[in-house]
């Protein structure tokens, strides 16, 4: 079975592999970026380590939703660092069998924008399964080390 952390962002239900999750913080407090970094809201101070906070909406070219007081920060573990993302509402974890995770490209038309992410379903809800590796494209890698 695969285990995912689930959360909502701007009405999208998202699932990401639990092994990629380092920690979750209830209160959103981060320092806004002093320099312009596309998709990055600012830096989250985690025990002295400054972790870039990624706005997934901007990463997906969507109009970002408002960050609320009860929004949460999910810190993700990467190969050589960490990055944080904003979640409107972390729901918990779900377990699904691998065959119940499908590639988005399997249902979208050929020639549509290639989308490396997937979909799964749990309790009749459809979740967008984040592919962490592809989320961290070259542009983001540069930002992490900026």
């Amino acid at each position: 079975m695969l285990e995912f952390l689930t959360f909502e962002l701007n009405e999208t239900k998202i699932a990401l592999p639990v092994e990629a999750v380092a920690s979750i913080f209830e209160a959103v407090a981060f320092q806004p970026s002093k320099i312009e970094r596309p998709g990055i809201l600012g830096d989250f101070n985690l025990h002295g380590e400054m972790i870039p906070v990624l706005n997934l909406d901007r990463h997906w070219n969507r109009e970002p939703g408002a960050i609320k007081l009860d929004s949460q920060i999910v810190v993700l573990r990467l190969n050589d660092g960490r990055i944080a993302i904003i979640a409107d509402d972390v729901k918990g974890t779900i377990k699904v069998s691998p065959e119940n995770v499908i590639e988005l490209n399997a249902i979208l038309p050929e020639g549509a924008l290639k989308n490396p992410h997937g979909l799964t379903m749990h309790d009749n809800e459809i979740y967008y399964v984040l592919d962490i590796e592809s989320l961290l494209d070259a542009r983001l890698e540069d930002l992490l080390h900026a």
Partner: peptide, 19 residues
């Protein structure tokens, strides 16, 4: 809805367990 949704797609539907 899903991120990066093409404009000719209205969204996703759960049809008895099939997306």
């Amino acid at each position: 809805s899903m991120p990066l949704q093409p404009d000719y797609i209205s969204g996703l539907m759960n049809l008895r367990g099939e997306i």
